Amino acid sequence: MNRLRVLDAVREHGALTQVEIAGVTGLSAATVSNLVKELDVAGMVDLRPSIRNGRRATQVSAATSEGLLAAAVFGDRDIRVAVATGPGDIVSQRRMPLPADHAADEGMSRAARLVQELVEATGQGMGGLRSLVVGLPAPIDTVSGQVGSEGILPGWQGIAVAAAMEDAVQVPVRLENTANLAALGEARLGALQGVSTGVFLKVSYGVGAGLIIGGELFRGSAGTAGEIGHVTIDENGPVCRCGNRGCLDTFVGARAVLAALRPTHGTLTFRDVISRALDGDPGCRRVLEDSGRHLGVALAGVVNLLNPEVVALGGQVARVGELVLGPMREAIERCAIPSAAASVEVRVGALAPEEADVRGALTLADQLREDADRASLTLQ
């Protein structure tokens, strides 16, 4: 445990002398000296001579050879893979399109191949990879380790994704919902930094939310907390892919938006709608304003229940900013209790739509790496 205290100190504060480590951890100088020697032998720290207050000292920092982290984040029609030395230090990344309703085998094969290509391009080889986090735009049942809804990502049903990817890349793998990953990314590097209770709302082809409670990601008892896209806002509304009627996703998801515009605009992509709205197209703007109102109605219940400090909007819809945020705020003020509505700030996420979930995945991969280091130290 004392070795872990020293390692955590240099990870949190950066390079420290042994005297400074003693001050931070409360351990004696002699104990710190012995622990640093053990960590150096284990390859967990780097040592270099330094001068502090005119005296020679040994500067201790977390080892730069801790290995690589990887993220493989799936969208409805693409996969984004990144390799990094830490959550904020991406070495290389790549995006590859995928067919709609692709099968799990195809997606995982492409993910494993991209991870291998990016890792080998760093010159370290696959032996340098320490952990991988896979993100899917679907509820993840943490009990079974599988997609938690039969109607969402049907090509991934019944697949133990983490286990299959571990066999492919031979490192620890964690599976997580992409909205949760984006919430982690914003909590670590973006709009939810320092926020104790916050909500990240991801609106792209579908709708999802990541919940930050007590400064930590809240997954619920089985991992499916935050599935706001499948909250019913009209019990007589359209049938949703999840099997229920009137889910939020049937009003604001890409399918609903494109269907509303098809009679007047023909065949568009969701990105087309965003771009045209930014260019002033009145029909596209109206549909997205309506989406903002629907989102606000659903969020009002979340605001009443959780009383969050911040709601951060991400995903492709975040590009239109106030066009959606304004109607969202109005609906929250109308439908939530006044004190809760008055205390929440609704704003656009700080990270780019294609970045937040990747950064969150690397944050979680970093935690996996640290867990492995802790297990190794404990065994020693």
Rank of each mutant, 00 (worst) to 15 (best):
A372I: 02
P49Y: 03
T197R: 11
L295Q: 02
E355F: 01
R11T: 03
A72K: 04
R276G: 02
I228C: 01
G158E: 11
A361I: 00
R276S: 05
A365T: 01
E355V: 11
G158H: 15
P139E: 01
T64I: 13
V252T: 10
R219E: 12
D234A: 08
V324T: 04
A183E: 03
S196V: 05
L258P: 04
H265L: 09
R188Y: 12
G301H: 15
K37M: 09
L69F: 04
A260T: 07
E150W: 09
C242G: 10
L278F: 13
R188L: 08
L184V: 12
A82W: 04
D167M: 09
L132M: 14
I233F: 07
N307W: 13
I233V: 15
L306P: 10
N53Q: 15
R245D: 05
D89I: 06
A30K: 12
R369M: 02
F251V: 09
G210Q: 00
G67M: 03
G220L: 11
E345Q: 14
L248A: 06
G54S: 06
T142K: 08
L261Q: 03
V73A: 02
L258Q: 04
G127Q: 04
V45K: 03
R56L: 10
R262S: 04
V311M: 07
D279Q: 15
G266N: 02
V119Q: 05
V24Y: 10
G26P: 11
K202V: 15
G266A: 00
G86E: 03
G198N: 06
V83H: 03
A100R: 15
A112T: 09
V344W: 07
T269N: 02
I337A: 13
D101E: 10
E166F: 02
D40Y: 13
P99R: 13
Y205C: 05
E289T: 11
F270V: 10
G301M: 11
Q170K: 14
L129V: 12
S339T: 12
K37G: 05
A57M: 07
C242T: 15
F218W: 14
L201C: 06
E186K: 12
R293V: 07
L118H: 02
T25R: 09
I228H: 04
G23D: 13
L258W: 10
V143I: 11
D366Y: 02
K202I: 04
T269G: 05
L313Q: 08
A104N: 03
Q193P: 00
A30Y: 14
A164C: 04
H294D: 11
D101V: 07
E370D: 11
V348S: 12
L192F: 06
R56V: 08
A22L: 14
E309R: 08
E66K: 14
D290W: 11
R347P: 07
R80Y: 09
G185K: 03
